[in-house]
Design a protein around this nucleic acid. Structure first.
Lengths: 214, 214
DNA sequence: CTGCCTCTCACCCATTTGGGGGAAATCTTA
DNA sequence: TAAGATTTCCCCCAAATGGGTGAGAGGCAG
């Protein structure tokens, strides 16, 4: 594999659901001497299809998108192409988002408020196999490690909570007794270091454990 | 005032805290034959300062920014320059955000998931004095009208709630009795059409009444 | 097979929250 | 100034939530 140059630039694919952001990322990459955008997609499914078509050297992928998000798309692509290099770019530095993206096989996680030079640099660095994570992002990830891991069941309870359900309703939804729901909340309060359900809901949203909207 | 043409293009100013988005909006406007970006800013305060310096024909302004947001910046600019034409562009179509932006004097409110052609079109239309609001946005705004207006005090209570405070703590914070807090919640539940405080908190966030983060 | 973890459920009891009234004080504005 | 909205507070009572403790069933890893 020869290193990219003016004749054989690094082939980049852009994935983002916002047209102007897509335009900016394309302009950013194309203005770099050794990189060139060869494809774009507006959501996760399209990203997977287009990836197979064009087989880019690297993907610059948004995280939050309608339908299939960036983490799922990363997982899908790397399942078929384990060497795929994907840089996730997001608005938020929420620890669960970061964790999910990296778990899914993203090589890096960067933020949209970074200077465009840093974004381009990360893309090139990742292509070269240099693992880079911005300090802000790494710090958030470290914070997450310090938090006790939340189990699948607990996540389901949180999800129902954020939908506005009462203990009884959550119990019905999950086919368990409401005493069990209370029990889950007790452990959740401890893990999230909060005192009541409202705080728990907000905390879950702020950490990206549960996604509002859609 | 002569109409913009290739020699005298419409002078546009771009305000957004995300460098790649700024780059995209600039590229978008500059690729239009009758428009040209003459200045940019990364937050509300900078927007005001730069506006005074360059006096653009129109501003394309992001809503959510660290420090002074787009609505406050719009208000500040139009206080000094009542004829300033400002198009707010946002990720979210939350009714309170839309309302605040238009209340602040924005001429239109558009979304970042719109096609770039529509964005450019809106900017030009607004300059010509044609008021345009995307149907999605107009619909959200209409929904808001159907909701009973929330008072300032109630908003403060909601804000404290989203911070995770209990009734007693909210009472202490606002120097009122906790019976009064309960009273405010009673009316809030009715206005937001929810049954408990957790739902109220989520609803307040989803409508953009209270902003999480920062 | 034996811990360890998760999920499940139960009981008790204190506190918090929510729903029904009503009412005085203040502030706005027609 | 009088109507109207807002903010403040009160009472009562029912329902929901939260904290402590304990414990059985099932799964998974060493």
């Amino acid at each position: 594999m020869s290193s990219p140059n003016a004749e054989h630039p690094l082939k980049v694919m852009i994935v983002d659901d916002h047209p102007p952001m897509r335009m900016g990322l394309i302009a950013l990459i194309n203005s770099h001497p050794r990189m060139s955008v060869i494809a774009e997609a507006a959501d996760g499914e399209e990203a997977f299809e287009v990836y197979e078509d064009v087989l880019p050297d690297i993907v610059l992928m948004d995280l939050r998108m309608p339908g299939m998000g960036g983490a799922e798309a990363t997982l899908a692509i790397r399942k078929r192409y384990p060497d795929a290099k994907i840089v996730v770019i997001s608005t938020y530095d929420w620890d669960e988002d970061i964790h999910r993206a990296l778990q899914s096989g993203a090589a890096s996680y960067i933020l949209k408020d970074m200077p465009i030079e840093d974004i381009a640099e990360t893309v090139e660095a990742v292509y070269k196999g240099e693992a880079t994570l911005p300090t802000t992002v790494a710090k958030r990830l470290a914070e997450r490690e310090r938090r006790e891991p939340i189990t699948d069941r607990e996540r389901e309870v949180l999800e129902a909570l954020v939908k506005g359900r009462s203990n009884k309703e959550i119990a019905r939804d999950l086919s368990i007794s409401d005493e069990t729901v209370k029990s889950h909340f007790k452990t959740l309060f401890a893990k999230l270091q909060v005192r009541d359900r409202t705080e728990a809901a907000i905390s879950a949203i702020r950490h990206g454990i549960i996604h509002i909207d859609e």
